[in-house]
């Protein structure tokens, strides 16, 4: 059974929701990747400026440290590119990755229902999709988010417990 879990997906795919529910069900601490950006990243995101790989370095390093420092943990993080996912699991061989897979239209609809998030506008979501290189089957277990949240959660939990 997976003890270090990373929930991947673009912003609005439901990482925090599914991640938190998994953590509660398993009794693990939950860490939302969005809470671990440094101040210059937060400022950039609030202005709608996309982050560079350099901007992401300290952030991914911190999330990797969280996974190292906790025996059990669920971390939600977009992990858009293979390099980012490699950094998340650097020096760890027991990380289970789940990928919340959805198309642009499904996720954009969800975005419009959200408030109070640093994420601004359709352009940012477009840039995320442009950056996204979806994880392969060997990297992460894919979950189809066109199902309702309960079904996604149940499927994720069953996979982790197997």
């Amino acid at each position: 059974m997976g003890k270090k879990i990373v929930v991947l997906g673009v912003s609005g795919s439901g990482k925090s929701l599914i991640g938190k529910r998994l953590a509660d069900a398993l009794g693990y601490p939950f860490f939302d990747g969005d809470d671990y950006h440094n101040s210059s990243n937060i400022e950039k995101m609030s202005k709608g400026i996309p982050l560079s790989d350099q901007d992401r370095f300290g952030w991914l390093y911190t999330l990797n440290a969280l996974l190292k420092n906790h025996e059990c943990a669920v971390v939600a993080c977009s992990g858009l590119k293979p390099e980012y996912r490699d950094m998340l699991k650097k020096d760890l061989d027991d990380v289970t990755m789940l990928y919340l897979k959805g198309d642009f239209d499904t996720i954009w609809q969800r975005h419009q229902k959200r408030n109070g998030h640093y994420f601004k506008g359709q352009d940012m979501l477009k840039s995320q999709f442009a950056t996204l290189i979806e994880p392969t089957q060997s990297e992460a277990f894919s979950l189809d988010i066109s199902q309702d949240a309960d079904a996604v959660f149940q499927q994720a939990l069953a996979y982790i417990k197997q």
Binding site: D35, Y36, H37, N38, S39, S40, Q54, F57, G58, W59, Y61, T62
Partner: peptide, 10 residues
């Protein structure tokens, strides 16, 4: 690789 690396605080 990167002149300045800023880590986050909580």
């Amino acid at each position: 690789s990167q002149r300045v690396i800023e880590l986050p605080f909580q």
